[in-house]
Design a protein around this nucleic acid. Sequence first.
DNA 1: CTAGCCCCTAGAGGCGGCTCTAGGTCAACC
DNA 2: GGTTGACCTAGAGCCGCCTCTAGGGGCTAG
Lengths: 138, 138
Amino acid sequence: MLARMPDSEASGLTIGQVSERTGLSVHALRFYEREGILAHPVRRAAGGRRVYAERDVEWLSVCVVLRASGMPLPDIRAYTDLVRQGPGNEEQRLVLMRRHQERVLEQMARLSESYDLISYKVRLYEDVVEQAGEAHAC
Amino acid sequence: MLARMPDSEASGLTIGQVSERTGLSVHALRFYEREGILAHPVRRAAGGRRVYAERDVEWLSVCVVLRASGMPLPDIRAYTDLVRQGPGNEEQRLVLMRRHQERVLEQMARLSESYDLISYKVRLYEDVVEQAGEAHAC
DNA sequence: CTAGCCCCTAGAGGCGGCTCTAGGTCAACC
DNA sequence: GGTTGACCTAGAGCCGCCTCTAGGGGCTAG
Protein backbone atom coordinates (compact mmCIF):
# COMPACT_ATOMS: atom_id res chain seq x y z
CA MET A 1 0.00 0.00 0.00
CA LEU A 2 2.86 2.29 0.80
CA ALA A 3 5.28 2.86 -2.03
CA ARG A 4 7.36 -0.23 -2.23
CA MET A 5 10.91 0.43 -1.16
CA PRO A 6 13.58 -1.79 -2.68
CA ASP A 7 14.43 -4.07 0.25
CA SER A 8 13.49 -1.25 2.57
CA GLU A 9 16.94 0.28 2.14
CA ALA A 10 16.88 3.62 3.81
CA SER A 11 18.49 5.58 0.97
CA GLY A 12 16.94 3.65 -1.91
CA LEU A 13 14.48 5.88 -3.68
CA THR A 14 12.05 4.99 -6.42
CA ILE A 15 11.70 7.15 -9.48
CA GLY A 16 8.35 8.33 -8.17
CA GLN A 17 9.89 9.54 -4.93
CA VAL A 18 12.67 11.32 -6.76
CA SER A 19 10.06 12.90 -8.98
CA GLU A 20 8.24 14.29 -5.96
CA ARG A 21 11.39 15.59 -4.32
CA THR A 22 12.92 17.21 -7.36
CA GLY A 23 9.77 18.41 -9.04
CA LEU A 24 10.85 16.70 -12.24
CA SER A 25 8.31 14.40 -13.84
CA VAL A 26 8.97 10.69 -13.96
CA HIS A 27 9.23 11.04 -17.73
CA ALA A 28 11.71 13.87 -17.40
CA LEU A 29 13.84 11.82 -15.01
CA ARG A 30 14.12 8.96 -17.47
CA PHE A 31 14.78 11.44 -20.23
CA TYR A 32 17.54 13.13 -18.24
CA GLU A 33 19.14 9.78 -17.59
CA ARG A 34 19.18 8.96 -21.29
CA GLU A 35 20.71 12.38 -21.88
CA GLY A 36 23.53 11.59 -19.50
CA ILE A 37 22.50 14.06 -16.84
CA LEU A 38 23.34 11.91 -13.87
CA ALA A 39 26.77 12.01 -12.32
CA HIS A 40 26.56 8.35 -11.33
CA PRO A 41 24.77 5.46 -13.04
CA VAL A 42 21.53 4.54 -11.28
CA ARG A 43 21.38 1.18 -9.63
CA ARG A 44 18.63 -1.15 -10.71
CA ALA A 45 16.44 -3.32 -8.55
CA ALA A 46 14.61 -6.48 -9.60
CA GLY A 47 12.63 -5.94 -12.76
CA GLY A 48 14.99 -3.22 -13.90
CA ARG A 49 13.53 -0.58 -11.59
CA ARG A 50 15.71 2.40 -10.91
CA VAL A 51 17.04 2.82 -7.41
CA TYR A 52 18.16 6.36 -6.68
CA ALA A 53 20.37 7.50 -3.83
CA GLU A 54 20.19 10.75 -1.91
CA ARG A 55 23.13 12.17 -3.82
CA ASP A 56 21.18 11.71 -7.04
CA VAL A 57 18.41 13.85 -5.61
CA GLU A 58 20.97 16.47 -4.63
CA TRP A 59 22.56 16.44 -8.02
CA LEU A 60 19.24 16.63 -9.80
CA SER A 61 18.25 19.54 -7.59
CA VAL A 62 21.32 21.39 -8.78
CA CYS A 63 20.35 20.59 -12.34
CA VAL A 64 16.86 21.91 -11.72
CA VAL A 65 18.32 25.21 -10.62
CA LEU A 66 20.60 25.33 -13.64
CA ARG A 67 17.70 24.59 -15.95
CA ALA A 68 15.49 27.13 -14.21
CA SER A 69 18.11 29.74 -14.92
CA GLY A 70 18.22 28.79 -18.57
CA MET A 71 21.28 26.58 -18.87
CA PRO A 72 20.75 24.43 -21.97
CA LEU A 73 20.70 20.68 -21.52
CA PRO A 74 23.87 20.16 -23.56
CA ASP A 75 25.73 22.44 -21.15
CA ILE A 76 24.32 20.67 -18.13
CA ARG A 77 25.37 17.46 -19.74
CA ALA A 78 28.90 18.73 -20.29
CA TYR A 79 29.05 19.84 -16.68
CA THR A 80 27.79 16.46 -15.55
CA ASP A 81 30.47 14.75 -17.60
CA LEU A 82 33.13 16.83 -15.87
CA VAL A 83 31.75 16.02 -12.46
CA ARG A 84 31.55 12.35 -13.33
CA GLN A 85 35.20 12.34 -14.30
CA GLY A 86 36.04 13.38 -10.76
CA PRO A 87 38.48 15.96 -9.39
CA GLY A 88 41.12 17.57 -11.59
CA ASN A 89 39.03 19.43 -14.12
CA GLU A 90 37.81 22.25 -11.88
CA GLU A 91 39.13 24.82 -14.31
CA GLN A 92 36.78 23.59 -17.01
CA ARG A 93 33.89 23.49 -14.61
CA LEU A 94 34.73 27.03 -13.62
CA VAL A 95 34.62 28.14 -17.25
CA LEU A 96 31.19 26.58 -17.72
CA MET A 97 29.82 28.08 -14.53
CA ARG A 98 31.22 31.53 -15.19
CA ARG A 99 29.74 31.55 -18.66
CA HIS A 100 26.39 30.64 -17.24
CA GLN A 101 26.76 33.19 -14.48
CA GLU A 102 27.19 35.89 -17.13
CA ARG A 103 24.18 34.67 -19.04
CA VAL A 104 22.11 34.87 -15.90
CA LEU A 105 23.32 38.40 -15.23
CA GLU A 106 22.37 39.41 -18.75
CA GLN A 107 18.98 37.81 -18.33
CA MET A 108 18.39 39.69 -15.10
CA ALA A 109 19.39 42.95 -16.73
CA ARG A 110 17.06 42.37 -19.66
CA LEU A 111 14.29 41.36 -17.33
CA SER A 112 14.54 44.44 -15.21
CA GLU A 113 14.56 46.65 -18.30
CA SER A 114 11.43 44.90 -19.47
CA TYR A 115 10.00 45.27 -16.03
CA ASP A 116 10.33 49.03 -16.29
CA LEU A 117 8.30 49.18 -19.47
CA ILE A 118 5.69 46.83 -18.07
CA SER A 119 5.37 48.84 -14.88
CA TYR A 120 5.01 51.97 -16.92
CA LYS A 121 2.17 50.40 -18.88
CA VAL A 122 0.52 49.19 -15.69
CA ARG A 123 0.63 52.68 -14.16
CA LEU A 124 -0.74 54.12 -17.36
CA TYR A 125 -3.72 51.80 -17.46
CA GLU A 126 -4.30 52.22 -13.75
CA ASP A 127 -4.65 55.95 -14.30
CA VAL A 128 -6.99 55.50 -17.23
CA VAL A 129 -9.17 53.03 -15.36
CA GLU A 130 -9.26 55.25 -12.30
CA GLN A 131 -10.31 58.29 -14.29
CA ALA A 132 -12.95 56.30 -16.10
CA GLY A 133 -14.29 55.23 -12.70
CA GLU A 134 -14.52 58.86 -11.60
CA ALA A 135 -16.30 59.82 -14.77
CA HIS A 136 -18.87 57.11 -14.04
CA ALA A 137 -19.31 58.45 -10.52
CA CYS A 138 -20.28 61.88 -11.87
CA MET B 1 20.66 50.41 -55.85
CA LEU B 2 19.48 51.86 -52.59
CA ALA B 3 16.65 50.03 -50.93
CA ARG B 4 13.60 50.96 -52.89
CA MET B 5 11.24 53.08 -50.87
CA PRO B 6 7.60 52.88 -51.80
CA ASP B 7 7.09 56.18 -53.67
CA SER B 8 9.79 57.67 -51.44
CA GLU B 9 7.19 58.26 -48.75
CA ALA B 10 9.03 59.41 -45.67
CA SER B 11 7.33 57.07 -43.19
CA GLY B 12 6.92 54.10 -45.52
CA LEU B 13 9.22 51.34 -44.34
CA THR B 14 10.04 48.08 -46.06
CA ILE B 15 10.02 44.83 -44.15
CA GLY B 16 13.80 44.80 -44.31
CA GLN B 17 14.05 48.19 -42.65
CA VAL B 18 11.62 47.16 -39.95
CA SER B 19 13.64 44.01 -39.43
CA GLU B 20 16.78 46.07 -38.86
CA ARG B 21 15.10 48.46 -36.48
CA THR B 22 13.26 45.93 -34.37
CA GLY B 23 15.82 43.16 -34.42
CA LEU B 24 13.13 40.75 -35.58
CA SER B 25 13.95 38.69 -38.64
CA VAL B 26 12.02 39.27 -41.83
CA HIS B 27 10.57 35.82 -41.39
CA ALA B 28 9.53 36.58 -37.84
CA LEU B 29 7.84 39.79 -38.97
CA ARG B 30 5.68 37.94 -41.48
CA PHE B 31 5.02 35.26 -38.92
CA TYR B 32 3.93 37.84 -36.34
CA GLU B 33 1.60 39.40 -38.86
CA ARG B 34 -0.05 36.06 -39.57
CA GLU B 35 -0.37 35.60 -35.83
CA GLY B 36 -2.23 38.86 -35.54
CA ILE B 37 0.48 40.69 -33.65
CA LEU B 38 0.05 44.03 -35.37
CA ALA B 39 -2.32 46.60 -34.00
CA HIS B 40 -3.07 47.93 -37.50
CA PRO B 41 -3.16 46.11 -40.82
CA VAL B 42 -0.06 46.75 -42.88
CA ARG B 43 -0.55 48.68 -46.08
CA ARG B 44 0.65 47.04 -49.25
CA ALA B 45 2.55 48.61 -52.11
CA ALA B 46 2.68 47.41 -55.70
CA GLY B 47 3.42 43.73 -55.92
CA GLY B 48 1.94 43.11 -52.50
CA ARG B 49 4.93 44.45 -50.60
CA ARG B 50 4.35 45.44 -47.03
CA VAL B 51 4.58 49.11 -46.18
CA TYR B 52 5.14 49.70 -42.49
CA ALA B 53 4.66 52.97 -40.64
CA GLU B 54 6.65 54.29 -37.71
CA ARG B 55 3.92 53.31 -35.29
CA ASP B 56 4.30 49.71 -36.41
CA VAL B 57 7.94 49.83 -35.47
CA GLU B 58 7.03 51.28 -32.09
CA TRP B 59 4.41 48.64 -31.50
CA LEU B 60 6.73 45.85 -32.55
CA SER B 61 9.39 47.19 -30.23
CA VAL B 62 6.97 46.89 -27.36
CA CYS B 63 6.25 43.34 -28.45
CA VAL B 64 9.95 42.57 -28.53
CA VAL B 65 10.24 43.67 -24.92
CA LEU B 66 7.23 41.59 -23.94
CA ARG B 67 8.65 38.56 -25.68
CA ALA B 68 12.07 39.13 -24.15
CA SER B 69 10.45 39.00 -20.75
CA GLY B 70 8.69 35.76 -21.58
CA MET B 71 5.18 36.81 -22.48
CA PRO B 72 3.76 34.00 -24.64
CA LEU B 73 2.65 34.88 -28.15
CA PRO B 74 -1.01 34.13 -27.43
CA ASP B 75 -0.95 36.71 -24.65
CA ILE B 76 0.74 39.27 -26.84
CA ARG B 77 -1.89 38.55 -29.42
CA ALA B 78 -4.68 39.06 -26.92
CA TYR B 79 -3.12 42.33 -25.86
CA THR B 80 -2.80 43.39 -29.47
CA ASP B 81 -6.46 42.61 -30.04
CA LEU B 82 -7.42 44.85 -27.14
CA VAL B 83 -5.26 47.68 -28.45
CA ARG B 84 -6.69 47.25 -31.93
CA GLN B 85 -10.20 47.59 -30.56
CA GLY B 86 -9.27 51.04 -29.33
CA PRO B 87 -9.96 52.83 -26.05
CA GLY B 88 -12.49 51.49 -23.56
CA ASN B 89 -10.93 48.18 -22.57
CA GLU B 90 -8.09 49.49 -20.44
CA GLU B 91 -9.22 47.37 -17.53
CA GLN B 92 -8.61 44.20 -19.51
CA ARG B 93 -5.26 45.46 -20.71
CA LEU B 94 -4.39 46.21 -17.11
CA VAL B 95 -5.24 42.67 -16.09
CA LEU B 96 -3.00 41.26 -18.81
CA MET B 97 -0.13 43.56 -17.96
CA ARG B 98 -0.37 42.99 -14.23
CA ARG B 99 -0.34 39.25 -14.73
CA HIS B 100 2.75 39.56 -16.83
CA GLN B 101 4.33 41.91 -14.34
CA GLU B 102 3.93 39.27 -11.66
CA ARG B 103 5.39 36.62 -13.89
CA VAL B 104 8.39 38.80 -14.50
CA LEU B 105 8.82 39.39 -10.77
CA GLU B 106 8.70 35.66 -10.16
CA GLN B 107 11.22 35.10 -12.89
CA MET B 108 13.56 37.65 -11.38
CA ALA B 109 13.22 36.07 -7.97
CA ARG B 110 13.96 32.62 -9.35
CA LEU B 111 16.87 33.95 -11.33
CA SER B 112 18.49 35.61 -8.38
CA GLU B 113 18.10 32.48 -6.30
CA SER B 114 19.74 30.54 -9.07
CA TYR B 115 22.39 33.19 -9.28
CA ASP B 116 23.29 32.58 -5.65
CA LEU B 117 23.90 28.90 -6.22
CA ILE B 118 25.88 29.58 -9.37
CA SER B 119 28.02 32.18 -7.66
CA TYR B 120 28.65 29.77 -4.86
CA LYS B 121 29.83 27.16 -7.32
CA VAL B 122 32.03 29.70 -9.08
CA ARG B 123 33.68 30.72 -5.82
CA LEU B 124 34.19 27.09 -4.93
CA TYR B 125 35.92 26.26 -8.18
CA GLU B 126 37.94 29.45 -8.06
CA ASP B 127 39.33 28.34 -4.72
CA VAL B 128 40.10 24.87 -5.93
CA VAL B 129 41.81 26.15 -9.07
CA GLU B 130 43.82 28.67 -7.07
CA GLN B 131 45.04 26.08 -4.61
CA ALA B 132 45.93 23.73 -7.42
CA GLY B 133 47.97 26.54 -8.95
CA GLU B 134 49.85 27.05 -5.69
CA ALA B 135 50.52 23.38 -5.42
CA HIS B 136 52.08 23.46 -8.87
CA ALA B 137 54.22 26.41 -7.84
CA CYS B 138 55.78 24.37 -5.01
C1' DC C 1 -7.15 -14.34 -8.58
C1' DT C 2 -7.64 -10.09 -10.17
C1' DA C 3 -7.60 -5.08 -9.62
C1' DG C 4 -4.68 -1.35 -8.79
C1' DC C 5 -0.60 0.67 -8.86
C1' DC C 6 4.05 1.68 -9.92
C1' DC C 7 7.47 0.56 -12.73
C1' DC C 8 9.97 -0.65 -17.50
C1' DT C 9 11.54 0.34 -22.79
C1' DA C 10 11.43 2.32 -27.30
C1' DG C 11 9.89 5.48 -29.83
C1' DA C 12 6.29 8.74 -31.37
C1' DG C 13 4.15 13.19 -30.54
C1' DG C 14 3.49 17.93 -29.03
C1' DC C 15 4.30 22.72 -28.17
C1' DG C 16 6.36 27.25 -28.63
C1' DG C 17 8.58 29.97 -31.59
C1' DC C 18 10.46 30.71 -35.12
C1' DT C 19 13.27 29.51 -39.69
C1' DC C 20 13.71 27.95 -44.10
C1' DT C 21 12.34 26.31 -48.87
C1' DA C 22 10.28 26.44 -53.27
C1' DG C 23 8.74 28.96 -56.64
C1' DG C 24 7.60 33.36 -58.09
C1' DT C 25 7.13 38.95 -58.84
C1' DC C 26 9.08 43.26 -59.64
C1' DA C 27 12.34 47.15 -60.15
C1' DA C 28 16.92 48.57 -61.05
C1' DC C 29 21.20 48.51 -62.95
C1' DC C 30 24.93 46.93 -66.70
C1' DG D 1 17.97 41.32 -71.93
C1' DG D 2 20.14 39.20 -68.19
C1' DT D 3 21.54 39.47 -63.40
C1' DT D 4 20.89 41.02 -58.81
C1' DG D 5 18.40 41.68 -54.83
C1' DA D 6 14.62 42.62 -51.98
C1' DC D 7 10.26 41.22 -51.64
C1' DC D 8 5.90 37.81 -51.94
C1' DT D 9 2.99 33.21 -50.41
C1' DA D 10 2.14 28.70 -48.59
C1' DG D 11 3.68 25.45 -46.18
C1' DA D 12 7.31 22.34 -44.43
C1' DG D 13 11.00 21.83 -41.09
C1' DC D 14 13.67 22.51 -36.96
C1' DC D 15 15.20 23.02 -32.15
C1' DG D 16 14.70 22.54 -27.32
C1' DC D 17 12.51 20.15 -23.99
C1' DC D 18 9.92 17.40 -22.58
C1' DT D 19 5.39 14.31 -22.59
C1' DC D 20 2.84 10.57 -23.92
C1' DT D 21 1.72 5.95 -25.97
C1' DA D 22 1.96 1.16 -26.61
C1' DG D 23 2.83 -2.85 -24.72
C1' DG D 24 4.44 -5.25 -20.91
C1' DG D 25 6.24 -6.85 -15.84
C1' DG D 26 5.40 -7.59 -11.18
C1' DC D 27 4.08 -6.73 -6.25
C1' DT D 28 0.42 -6.44 -2.96
C1' DA D 29 -4.20 -5.82 -0.98
C1' DG D 30 -8.88 -7.40 -0.93
